[in-house]
Design a protein around this nucleic acid. Structure first.
Lengths: 210, 210
DNA sequence: CTGTCAATCCCATAATCAGGGGAGATGGTA
DNA sequence: TACCATCTCCCCTGATTATGGGATTGACAG
């Protein structure tokens, strides 16, 4: 049983050559190809593909929008994004929206077949540069911690505040008086340069202080 | 000029066979290998490697700790993690801590050489299953939005609250009275099931409502 | 045309919070 | 020893917030 494929690509030449590339391999079957993602949901319903190849930069309805349409109905259908750019914005946007793989057009000839097999086996094929980008972003998200020189006690209390506890509850949980809690919070505010709970909690969460 | 490699792997047998695998290729040079990451910073200083191969599961100082040590000094030195587990926790932990690549031991023979070349060219080699895991996590982080049926106005105000604005400031910015702000916030709290600013802000940020 | 909903406004009160002050007890360091 | 940071406690006051009412308007659906 061949792997059933739908292709979205606005460049006629590339679409044609991709089509023949796919048809060449006997374990792939190209069901249809389109020049934009305008009717992607209908296309899927009619063709029942196993995998979708989606260019990002298309007129009318582009690849990201197409991806969104797909994900609104089909959560697990593998979608491999194709693009000439390794532009950060596009990549991250596609991935946030649930792309399964992401290959640069320059790697198409060497990687496409492999990539299709990989997604069918539950993998996530990416051009190495794309993978690096994702890891970098991921890493940034999780290490950004400016040093405000909060003491351990202050961190605990900020944590508790961030969990939505009132001064009273914090005092109870930490086994200290209400007055002490306010004292700690005063210095937390000073160190963070904020003037309200909302600001403190926001800063704590955004900068991963807790 | 061969690519200079340091290896960390506690299993003697595997360490030996990796060592010979690496020495076999003439574009690689194995500088040294160790059974845990205890002296990783000294090792690096002495050997000046281009790439580090790091097992995760090692006695004394494990791969994640080793990675952390490395990242505290060397921000760009490529570190490829090796593991038998495709266990979510390890993978994500390693990536959060700045791993450059992540390959499963079952793929070592077929992918290792390739992976080393990829990191040297600025890529991020990952076993497909690992890549899928990362994308999935990434995707979750960015789409998790439970529907609390907040109205547009309520979302705006929640946003403003999350930015650290007081009721007064919100009233001013939105051009409505203080009373109206409290009314909106009342219904926001009801819909979110919270009873304080801190809780609301926390929930809004954690569940990406804003 | 009637009901529902979003958005606006108002009133009122108890509780909580922000920010100002001062002060004693640790424990480590210069 | 003297200093300094940390953690603890206290007092006070004005501002802000949480929560309970009730009410009007316009839009939209049935």
């Amino acid at each position: 049983m061949p792997i059933r494929i739908l292709l979205y690509e606005d460049n006629t030449e590339l679409r044609t050559s991709l089509a023949s590339l796919i048809s060449f391999a006997e374990d792939f079957e190209l069901l249809a190809s389109f020049e934009n993602a305008g009717n992607v949901l209908d296309n899927i319903k009619q063709n029942q593909p196993d995998v979708i190849l989606m260019d990002i930069d298309m007129p009318e309805v582009n690849g990201i929008e197409g991806l969104n349409l797909i994900r609104s109905k089909y959560n697990d259908l593998p979608v491999i994004m194709l693009t000439v750019f390794d532009d950060d914005g596009h990549v991250l946007e596609a991935i946030k929206n649930g792309a399964t793989g992401y290959i640069l057009k320059q790697h198409l000839t060497t990687r496409l077949a492999n990539a299709i097999h990989e997604v069918m086996e539950g993998g996530a094929p990416m051009s190495p540069a794309v993978a690096r980008l994702v890891l970098k972003f991921f890493n940034n998200q999780h290490t950004r911690k400016t040093d405000y020189a909060l003491t351990n006690r202050e961190k605990q209390i900020l944590q508790s505040l961030t969990d939505g506890n009132s001064y009273k509850m914090i005092a109870f949980h930490e086994g200290i008086t209400l007055g002490t809690v306010t004292t700690h919070i005063k210095s937390i505010y000073e160190k963070l340069g904020v003037h309200s709970q909302a600001e403190a909690v926001s800063k704590a969460l955004k900068e991963r202080l807790v």
